[in-house]
Design a protein around this nucleic acid. Structure first.
Length: 582
DNA sequence: GCCGTTTTCGGCCCGACTGTTTTCAGTCG
């Protein structure tokens, strides 16, 4: 059983919090940064440690000797000594407690010292019994806030899906634009970067009358509770999502948009680049601080050289504008400086869809209806890929070889009448050993075979996916990890190895655009493209409306630095046909 | 604990809001 990167990252984050609770300086942030990079690393870090040793682990940014050896320790012993010691010193449910709004590691430390609070239930009880207010540094207000937020922490497990947050972002920006004195309004944060899951929605407004905007925001009918409200900043809860508003001067909008879009790693790198140039970047602008004795004396020290537009901020640092999806601290600033940013694909480049379902399996509509809807969207082709029977299919879903034969005949007939090209395909199931449950001779007669894992979705899946990718009849590996966001983490996959095999075999790796999946994710797409693999953006639509998911796939591809030529579904139909035949 | 446009030691991004401790710490982004 492989140890997932998530799991390793969680251990180091816990250690970071335990150290922070004990007032240790700098180490907590070092552990958190390392944890973040371990989580995002495209290969399995535990396997890396086991097979190539700590040197290989140290090549991960922000991971040094000490953390690399702790990785190995965890892989070998299942525990980290230092973490065990810290847990013994501060035996609390750190993750659960710090998930309460307003409660951080220091608060956890103080409440444990004073009241012995270890769990969420004990925290709630201490608040109810008015014990928290007796602790130095805490008062009745803090106590009632904790009480109010404990419930929310229990309910809101994890983050919101991108597709849930996008409409909230659109609604709040429309509302503010329509009701308040707003000059410019945009969403920022992870939503603007199109991360698969969203912690909160960030709205940014340019206005000369911030108080009115804040008032309008706290009066927003969708807001169920006001978390905080100041003169230029406020937070509310809407549809169980935290929505943050920031109001800035119009002249500072670009700097603020850059700043609040993040990511944190990207911004830290950008600021360091600024310091090297005697500049200072903050949410108010870019300032020339050469010859200034104390650049930290205030927010707007020095001569402002940029701030009204976001591109101006980058320009002041000798950089071209960097698309928001790339701002994850994965080398985009170096690439920008070298003039080597990718020419990212856009939604209008998509010409078709190679993965969709009809009522033949678990879709809602007929073949004709799905083809008609694709035609209306302006697609040049679609490929119908209903489920084959096999491992992972339940409740009678999935076609036998005989049924696939019948569907093939019908698909040929529909193709003859349709305005667009209709490819005949199947979504076959990859079993635990990498085999498919459909007859090889039948697979060869289909235009496109999508092979996807639907069962045994834990542990390392690299070998079985490589086997499937190398199958001569397979054209696409569908939703390779099988993850479902906020539900299951799916297979552990060495994407580099899979992509290498896929590139050699002429098999495409799917970006499944269903917002519950977004599989492959951006970092994996980037790794796949580096190996020369072709990716394909498919919606896995089960009804016509789901074709709209394609935009989530496009933004995921952009997060993976994909150019149009990397993405099969942007190619002309003849080239797609040649790829599928090859 | 990590790292290098201050380069193997001495620093580590920056600011708003809240509550409480009357000058600031903690949290969050």
């Amino acid at each position: 059983m492989t140890i997932r990167n998530d799991e390793l990252a969680a251990r180091f984050e816990e250690l970071a919090d335990l150290l922070a609770a004990q007032d240790v300086e700098y180490k907590p942030v070092a552990y958190r940064r390392a944890a973040e990079n371990i989580r995002e690393h495209p290969e399995n870090v535990a396997t890396l440690a086991q097979e190539e040793g700590t040197d290989a682990v140290e090549r991960i940014d922000r991971v040094g000797e000490a953390i690399a050896s702790k990785v190995l320790e965890y892989v070998e012993n299942g525990e980290i000594d230092e973490l065990q010691e810290k847990r013994a010193e501060l035996p609390v449910e750190m993750v659960a407690l710090t998930s309460v709004e307003g409660v951080g590691p220091k608060t956890v430390g103080s409440l444990y010292e004073a009241l012995g609070v270890q769990t969420l239930d004990e925290l709630e009880a201490a608040a109810k019994n008015e014990e928290i207010r007796t602790v130095s540094g805490f008062g009745p207000k803090t106590e009632s806030n904790i009480l109010e937020n404990v419930d929310f922490a229990r309910q809101s497990q994890g983050r919101q899906l991108l597709s849930d947050a996008v409409p909230i972002g659109e609604t709040v920006t429309d509302y503010l634009t329509g009701t308040a004195p707003v000059e410019r309004c945009a969403v920022a944060g992870s939503l603007r970067r199109w991360r698969p899951t969203i912690g909160d929605v960030d709205a940014l407004v340019a206005s000369t009358n911030p108080q009115t905007v804040v008032d309008a925001f706290t009066d927003w009918p969708d807001a169920s509770r006001v978390i905080e409200a100041g003169t230029g900043k406020a937070s509310v809860r809407a549809n169980d999502v935290r929505v943050d508003l920031r109001v800035v001067e119009p002249a500072e909008f670009g700097a603020a948009l850059q700043y609040f879009t993040g990511s944190k790693d990207h911004n830290v790198e950008l600021r360091n680049r600024a310091i090297a140039r005697d500049l200072k970047v903050n949410e108010y602008g870019v300032f020339d601080v050469s010859g200034i004795d104390d650049p930290d004396a205030g927010q707007r020290v020095g001569d402002r050289v940029a701030g009204e537009t976001e591109s101006g901020v980058y320009d002041a640092l000798d950089l071209p504008p960097i698309p928001a999806e790339l701002r994850e601290g994965r080398g985009e600033i170096d690439a920008a400086a070298a003039g080597a940013l990718p020419e990212l694909l856009t939604l209008d480049a998509i010409r078709g869809d190679l993965h969709l379902h009809t009522e033949w399996s678990d879709g809602r509509n007929s073949i004709e209806e799905m083809v008609e809807a694709a035609t209306e969207r302006g697609y040049e082709y679609v490929c119908v890929t209903d489920h084959a029977e096999g491992p992972g299919m339940v409740g009678g879903v999935g076609l036998s070889d005989q049924q696939l034969e019948s569907q093939l005949s019908e698909l040929r007939a529909v193709d003859d009448d349709a305005e667009i090209d209709v490819f005949a395909g199947v979504e076959a199931n990859i079993d635990a050993d990498g085999r498919l449950s459909v007859d090889d001779a039948l697979l060869e007669r289909l235009d496109c075979v999508v092979a996807s894992p639907h069962a045994a979705l834990d542990g390392d899946g690299t070998d079985r996916l490589v086997t499937a990718a190398e199958h001569p009849a397979v054209d696409v590996v569908g939703h390779p990890t099988g993850r479902q966001l906020n539900r299951r983490s799916g297979l552990d996959v060495d994407v580099t190895a899979l992509a290498e095999a896929a590139a050699k075999a002429g098999t495409a790796l799917e970006i499944n655009a269903n917002p519950r999946r977004l599989d492959l994710r951006g970092a994996a797409v980037q790794a796949a493209i580096e190996q020369g693999a072709t990716v394909t953006i498919d919606t896995d639509a089960h009804r016509p409306g789901s074709y709209d998911y394609v935009r989530y796939g496009v933004h995921t591809a952009r997060r993976g630095w994909a150019e149009p030529s990397d993405v099969l579904t942007t190619w002309p139909t003849e080239d797609v046909r040649a790829f599928l035949d090859g």
